[in-house]
Each structure stands twice: as structure tokens, then as C-alpha cells.
Amino acid sequence: MEGSFTGKERMEAAFRGEKLDRQPVLLLLGGHYAERAGYTLEQFFTQPEAALETAKITCEELDSDALFVPLNPLMPDAQEAFRKLMGKAPSIKKDNIKEKLPRWSVRLPREDPLFSSHLDMCEKCVEVFPDYHINTMIGGPWSFALELRGANEAMEDLYDDKQFLHDLTKYTTDTVIARCLAVLELGVFPFIGDPSAGMSLISPAVYREHVLPYHQKIVEAVHDKGGGVSFHICGYVDPIFQDLIDLGIDGLSIDGPSSLEKLFELGRGKTTIIGNIDPMLFVEGTPDQLDEEARKCLDIAQGEARYVIGPGCQIPLQANLDNIKAFTQACHKYGAF
């Protein structure tokens, strides 16, 4: 790694509000370097060795400060791989869920075969990448609830059966908490991704009634165990910036459509802000454009200790690798304190 500090040290400093040498960089990547590592995407998504080797090549190529544990069935790009393997897009929507829910108990993380494999990969990554801040994406309670219920049906429940939605979200929240505590125990930082909780879908009022209390429970449970947690909500979340800051979360990752400037106005120093280059720029843009966007974000941050620069969401698999490299190099160049 370049410099005299590790990525892990830089990220931990950012969460504490301390400055080391430069602004840390957090890239949300998946199997982008699988081919360079000598594997297919399907191998990356299903074989631990392929996932680990791809992560190694990714770290060597980009020298970013953090990584997301691969072999994660909850990552968006994993869905495409599972679709090809299973012959159909994966869905966890349950029929007759209102009758079934009262009989469900929270599945322990190690009882879930897919998540258990992911926990094995978490352990491996902590061992193989000691110099990196290791994160893993855990699906948030609201999006999880909508997947179980069906998004269209849940939108009707907001009018016709609010109590059922609360009961369902309580169940998903307990599951999410169990997963967070399981990864924390292994030394991995939970990163809650709740894509359906933003204003690209629901209103601020619905967020405050149906999501916020459950996000609060997760933060409290993680903090009670002495751990930290970051949250990411896709799309536009400006109207709930204050709510998210007041949650006391350690890191807040925002997507391209949200305003980094506005978040700094409200939350500078109160949470570690992460983001927010438009992920599609890595596909459609040029290295010069990525360089410029990195500069713009760092200008807005004005050397804030509690800032981590990165894309607004997962970088699409079809991204130009030269763009990813150019962005990371720009962050190193312009992000020095």
C-alpha cells in the first residue's frame, strides 16, 4: 500500500474524526476484476477461492482503503449470477405471508446456508487483508420486508394494513440485527443497504413511521456491543438527512441523486459521510470526468476528517476499469490533508 498508513488505519481515523495522511477511499465493487484474476463471474459469485483471489487482485490494482467481503448473496450484482445459475431471477416473495408470519422465528445467521458461507468468507477476508477496513453489505429491514411481501402489496399495506407492515419489519429488523452482530464478532464492519427506504420510493413521512424506528433499533443493538455501523439508502434521501444524522450512525453513504453539499451543511463532523459519485459515470464517463468529480467532492468536503470519498452506490459490473483506476488515483492525488 502507498504511504505509511494502512487503509484500515485511515478508515478508523475517519470514523473517529482524526486525520492521517489523506481522505480514505471506499469503493463498492464486486466481480469487476474476476476476469483479471482468471475467473468467470459465475465462479466469482459461487466459489470462495475465486472470490478471494478476485478481491486480492482488486486490492492490488486499486490500492483503495477498504473492501466489501465478496460471496455476498445480498449484493445487487450477485442477483444476475444467481439468475443465470438458477435459470430465473431469484425472488424471496412469500405467498400467504400474513398467515405465515406469526409462526416465523428469526433464523440464526449460521442456520442460513447462504449467509453462513458468507460468514466463512468474512473470516477469511479478515485473515487475508489485515491492512484493509473490511465491510460487508447487509440488506436493510425495510427493503427485506418489501422483498418478502412484494413491493406492490406493501404499498397497499401502507393504507390497508399498517400493523402487518410493522410486524413484518420487526421480524426483518431482528434478522438484520442478528446478522450485524454475527459479522461484528468476526471483526467485519456492517454496512446496512436499505435501497427501498429512500424518497425515490417512499415519502419522508412513511420513512419516519415505518423505517426510522427499526433503523434506530439496529444502531442501538450494534452500539450496545461496542461496534459501529454504516447505512446506505439508494437514490434521493435529502429530506431525511437530519433523521439519518440523528440516528447516531457511524457512517452515512449517499447515492448520486442526493446532495453532498446539503449533507455537509447538516452533518459535518456528526457522522462520517461517504460518497457520492454517480455510479453510472464509471460506465458512461471518461477518466477525465472521474478525475473532475473526485475533485468536486473533495472541494465540498474541505478536508473534513469525517469524510470518505467513493461512488454513490455499487459500481456497475459493466464499468470501464480505467475509470475506476483513474478515480482512485484522483482521490489519492487530491485528497491529501
Binding site: 406492490n152 404499498m155 393504507y159 424518497m199 425515490s200 420510493l201 417512499i202 415519502s203
Partner: peptide, 14 residues
């Protein structure tokens, strides 16, 4: 005007 979001518009539409 960002007073209605997807659920409200869907409900009205349905």
C-alpha cells in the same frame, strides 16, 4: 412538488 411519492401516486392511480 414532492408532497406525494410513489406509494401515494400508486394508491391514487389504482
Amino acid at each position: 412538488n414532492e408532497e406525494y411519492f410513489v406509494p401515494e401516486v400508486m394508491r391514487s392511480a389504482s
